[in-house]
């Protein structure tokens, strides 16, 4: 494949992300209003249902939930949609030569944009109800860093699954199952602190555990995650990302032969 310049790459990525976002709301009467309506409805339902079912003895459990479930939705939706994306865009790939990364990455980015919109609502809500803990610099930094690494990690996994799915269509089914399992082993609904001490080491192997615990800590203001392990997980995410880019580059040369 002919190498695209950085400018071309980012212009195309931006245009595809825009397309992804716009086309979602194009023919809805309420249009972009859905971008905010959806997360509000979602949070109301989640807050209501889950606050009744579990509590784990956490103060402001509904806030704790939002801090975990909104980012989780981003991760799960992106991965679910990006995995078969290369196969869906086969006509484009067979007819045009452009950096194939654009397809899964634009899906991840458009979902990230939606996550941003819903987190923005959450921040307003926090400010209005004068729960200021997230605006403490250290918490806010943790919040931003966690979101950033969540984005990188989601992009990495999406690149891996979407490229492999071209050659083995089983990957899409596998990913669906994986997401379901991953949801329950990631501290999104529950705090990491309810896990027995000797099992926590196992949870540290999941790169998402640090991200989610940090997000919860930033939003609700309690719970903790050892910084050294968090740093280790961030480093691991960077490695996985580099690996995914190399793998994708390598595989994408032959996409058009398998579609």
């Amino acid at each position: 494949m002919k190498k695209a310049t950085a400018r071309q790459f980012f212009e195309l990525l931006f245009a595809f992300t825009q397309k992804e976002i716009k086309s979602r709301y194009k023919n809805a009467v309420l249009g972009f209003l859905w971008m905010f309506l959806n997360p509000i409805i979602q949070m109301l339902v989640m807050g209501f249902v889950f606050s009744l079912i579990f509590r784990f003895g956490i103060k402001d459990y509904y806030l704790f939930l939002f801090a975990g479930l909104l980012p989780w939705n981003f991760f799960a939706l992106s991965l679910n949609k990006a995995t078969p994306s290369i196969v869906y865009e086969r006509s484009l790939i067979q007819k045009s030569s452009f950096p194939r990364e654009i397809i899964p990455l634009s899906i991840v980015l458009s979902n990230f944009f939606h996550l941003f919109a819903s987190l923005f609502l959450l921040l307003i809500f926090l400010a209005v109800t004068s729960k200021w803990q997230i605006f403490i610099p250290l918490n806010f930094l943790l919040f931003i860093a966690s979101l950033f690494f969540l984005l990188i990690f989601t992009a990495a996994i999406s690149l891996i699954t979407s490229s492999l799915n071209v050659f083995w269509r089983d990957i899409a089914f596998f990913t669906q199952a994986l997401i379901l399992i991953w949801f329950y082993v990631t501290p999104a609904l529950y705090p990491l602190s309810i896990i027995p001490q000797r099992l926590q080491a196992v949870f540290y192997l999941n790169p998402l555990s640090g991200i989610f615990t940090s997000l919860q800590k930033a939003v609700v203001g309690h719970g903790s995650f050892p910084y050294s392990i968090l740093a280790g997980q961030f480093l691991l995410i960077i490695f996985i990302f580099i690996f995914s880019v190399i793998l994708f580059r390598n595989r994408s040369k032959y996409f058009s032969d398998w579609l």
């Binding site: 212009e11 195309l12 245009a15 086309s23 007819k95």
Partner: peptide, 20 residues
């Protein structure tokens, strides 16, 4: 090949142009 059915002609010009 590069056209998206839900976008307008204008928006499609942008995307297709970039692809070219």
């Amino acid at each position: 090949a590069g056209f998206h059915p839900d976008l307008t002609g204008e928006e499609n010009i942008s995307i297709n142009g970039l692809l070219l």
